[in-house]
């Protein structure tokens, strides 16, 4: 919601997720621009109701994993086969494919390491979650048990109508 500073919103505060889920299509059919819902917990089906696209974060995870897998194999090939082959414990396997069974555990761990951390870092950056970020707290109980519906407006004259509609749809309180 980085653009929130420039755009104008009216917020409806709700205290039930089912009411919110019913209100979204009802308000949209009346022409209200319901942009977002802030909830204290994930609501099943909310992303579909708001028309959000599916997140592609798991695809990035796959790519990070592939990177980790390749890097690990390359590293072990370079260190133990190419640069400094070693004959330890009666295993003079100076060819990559002959050593491969022993390289699998590190390859696997490296794949998971890169996939997991890469994905979480991407999640933090895309969602602007970092230590020191000041949250935009619209309602003090929006992380506790209240739901905030954000309806976009173009000018303040619309606000009164939108607030009335939000209340009619079940909002217990409205805010600009």
């Amino acid at each position: 919601m980085s653009a929130a500073k420039h755009k104008k919103f009216v917020y409806g505060i709700f205290n039930d997720d089912d009411v919110v889920m019913h209100a979204i299509p009802a308000l949209r059919s009346k022409g209200l621009r319901v942009k977002d819902v802030i909830s204290p917990f994930p609501i099943h089906g909310l992303d579909d109701a708001l028309g959000l696209e599916r997140t592609r974060i798991s695809i990035t995870c796959f790519l990070y994993g592939m990177t980790g897998c390749s890097l690990a194999l390359l590293m072990m090939y370079y260190m133990n086969i190419f640069d400094w082959p070693m004959d330890i414990g009666g295993k003079p396997s100076f060819a990559f494919y002959k050593n491969l069974p022993a390289f699998i555990p590190v390859t696997f761990e490296s794949t998971v390491l890169c996939a997991a951390h890469g994905m979480v870092i991407t999640f933090f950056l895309r969602s602007k979650l970092l230590p020191g970020v000041e949250p935009h707290v619209i309602h003090p109980r929006m992380a506790d048990d209240h739901f905030v519906m954000a309806v976009q407006i173009d000018n303040d004259s619309e606000a009164a109508n939108v607030e009335a509609q939000l209340r009619a749809a079940g909002a217990i309180e409205t805010k600009k």
């Binding site: 819902v37 909830s39 992303d47």
Partner: peptide, 18 residues
């Protein structure tokens, strides 16, 4: 500690997928 978390629909969607 909370990294500026706000429970927007997109954040929750990503959170659940992650």
């Amino acid at each position: 500690l909370s990294f500026g978390w706000v429970g927007t629909a997109k954040n929750w969607q990503r959170f659940e997928e992650v």
